[in-house]
């Protein structure tokens, strides 16, 4: 008994070291909020179009068209969105992946000016000025990007701006996998 107790501090210390290693892991993000929508159907919504953008409106029914697509929440007042924007442009130009935009808590005139200035990578644009659809998506801020599969279910959510690393290591492989999945199913 006594001899066992003698090692107890060592055992406690080892457990703590394990916890510290887990806690200090640079890949662990304690602020990450996993999306509740993964693998679930999105709730019904229909957002108005952005007048003058040339992109049609976005509704829930546009998402189950058998294509894999991105939904990107953005706003003209959002600085990281500006950083992300050229990468969305590249994706839209160089791939066949549809990118739908949701203008979140933004004045339509400001959104339009922003897109005219920087370019419009979006296939469809929905205007969500009052954050009604944003709440349904569990948005905590902009930018946020969702990968939607062929059946209109959310398969992945990225919080924060997309960059080439995320696009090449996460987005593109997942989109390809989902496309294969859709082909096999049909």
């Amino acid at each position: 008994m006594m001899r066992w107790l003698f090692f107890l501090p060592l055992v406690v210390f080892a457990v703590l070291v394990g916890l510290w290693f887990w806690g200090l892991n640079p890949n662990r993000d304690p602020n990450a909020l996993p999306s509740q929508l993964i693998n679930k159907e999105l709730p019904a919504f229909a957002l108005p179009a952005l007048e003058g953008s040339g992109s049609p409106a976005l509704a829930r029914s546009d998402l189950s068209d058998g294509q894999v697509k991105l939904i990107n929440f953005f706003a003209s007042w959002c600085v990281p969105c500006r950083a992300e924007h050229p990468h969305l442009e590249t994706l839209a130009k160089e791939t066949s992946l549809p990118i739908h935009g949701i203008a979140w808590r933004d004045e339509p005139a400001a959104t339009l000016a922003w897109l005219q200035n920087l370019g419009n990578p979006y296939t469809r644009i929905g205007v969500d000025q009052k954050n009604t659809v944003g709440l349904d998506f569990g948005i905590t801020g902009v930018p946020e990007t969702f990968i939607i599969d062929a059946k209109g279910r959310v398969r992945y959510r990225h919080q924060g701006p997309l960059d080439p690393r995320i696009i090449n290591t996460v987005i593109t492989p997942l989109v390809q996998a989902l496309r294969r999945e859709a082909e096999e199913a049909s």
Binding site: L33, P34, Q36, L37, L135, D136, F137, G138, T140
Partner: peptide, 8 residues
């Protein structure tokens, strides 16, 4: 809210 944001 839990459905959208989790128990968090």
């Amino acid at each position: 809210f839990v459905e959208r944001y989790g128990n968090y």
